[in-house]
Structure formats: C-alpha cells, structure tokens
Amino acid sequence: MTFWERSDSGMLTVLHQRGDYAGLQVRDLDDSWITVPVSPDTLVINIGDLMARWTNDRWPSTRHRVVAAPDTTSTRDSIAAFHLPNVDTVIAPLEPFVGADGPRYEPVTPYVWEAMFLAEYDRRVPS
C-alpha cells in the first residue's frame, strides 16, 4: 500500500527514521520516486511549502509519500520536527529569488498560511 503524495506546509522538516525497511520516498525534480534509506545516524531534511514561497520556488518543497512494508512483521519509526517562523513573520519572496517576472506569491504570515494549507489539505485528503 502507498499513501498519498504530499508536501509539508512549513519551512523545514527534520526527520529521523529507524526500522528494518525504507518506506519513505521523495519525488525528485525529474518526477521519479527515490527511496530514502533508513540510516540511524542520518537526518532527512525536507523543504516545506512556506520555504518554497520564501524562495519564489527556487527551493521547491519536497513531495513525499510512504510505502507500506512488504510484510506485517517489518517495522519503521519516524520522528519529525516541523519548523516554522514566528506566526506574525511576513513571508514574501526574497529579492534575490525574484526575477524579471516578479514574485510568484503574495506576502503571507505563517498563521494565515497554515489556515490556507489546512483548508486545502482537508479538501484533498482521500476518504
């Protein structure tokens, strides 16, 4: 079983994995899925949608999914830390990332952004 593809809403997600199978997959820029190996001394860093907005998509958010183990005796644990700026920080594309076409995003605060993200998330979650 594969869970649906998604990205994280914030700036950065720091993830530690352990277990006996690699279930996390990330989508690369060529639209291929890459399985992230489980390594006890490694942290996985995902860029979130808010960071993508801040960099005007220069640093795109990490699309990812989880694939279920091939058998029910396999184990996998993840510990995630989601990082956001203060709720009243204005997030607008930073000048070095804005080209001749201008910014792709309107300014937003993390507080407003999370509400927008969750409304869209609720709309897309498979039932």
Rank of each mutant, 00 (worst) to 15 (best):
F97S: 12
A22I: 02
L15Q: 03
D8E: 13
N86W: 10
A52T: 05
E106R: 07
M1W: 07
G19T: 01
V14F: 14
I91M: 06
A119F: 06
D49A: 08
L24A: 00
A80H: 11
L43W: 00
D41N: 14
P85C: 09
Q25R: 04
V36S: 06
E106P: 02
G48W: 09
S39N: 14
R124D: 08
E114R: 15
L29T: 09
I45N: 05
V36Q: 09
F117M: 10
D41L: 08
D20K: 11
V98W: 05
W59A: 10
S32D: 14
L12A: 07
E5V: 08
P110S: 09
V112H: 07
I45P: 07
T35F: 00
Y111P: 04
P103W: 04
T89A: 13
D8W: 02
A92H: 10
S61V: 06
V112E: 13
V90H: 12
Y105K: 04
A69P: 13
P70Y: 12
D57V: 01
G48S: 03
T2R: 12
P40G: 14
T73N: 14
S74Q: 12
P96C: 12
A22G: 03
V98F: 09
M11T: 10
V87A: 14
D101K: 15
T109W: 01
P85S: 07
R123E: 03
Q25K: 02
L43M: 07
T89K: 15
S32H: 15
I79L: 15
V38E: 00
D8N: 15
P37G: 02
D71M: 06
S39H: 15
R63Q: 10
A22N: 06
A52V: 08
I79K: 03
R65N: 00
V112T: 09
S39L: 13
R18T: 13
G10E: 02
L94E: 13
M51R: 09
N46G: 07
V14H: 10
G99Y: 09
N86H: 13
E114K: 13
P107I: 09
V14Y: 13
V87I: 13
D31W: 05
Y105V: 07
E95P: 15
T35A: 01
A81F: 06
E5A: 15
V87Y: 15
E5K: 13
A92M: 11
V26P: 04
G23D: 02
D71F: 10
L84M: 14
D30M: 00
F82A: 10
G48E: 01
V26D: 04
G10F: 05
F117A: 11
L15D: 05
F82T: 09
H83A: 12
L29D: 10
A92F: 11
N46P: 00
S74W: 05
D88N: 02
E106K: 05
P40K: 06
I91E: 06
I47C: 10
R18Y: 02
A100R: 11
P107C: 08
L24G: 00
N56W: 03
F117R: 11
V14S: 09
T62H: 15
A68Q: 12
P93L: 01
P70S: 08
S78T: 12
L118C: 07
P103Y: 06
T13S: 00
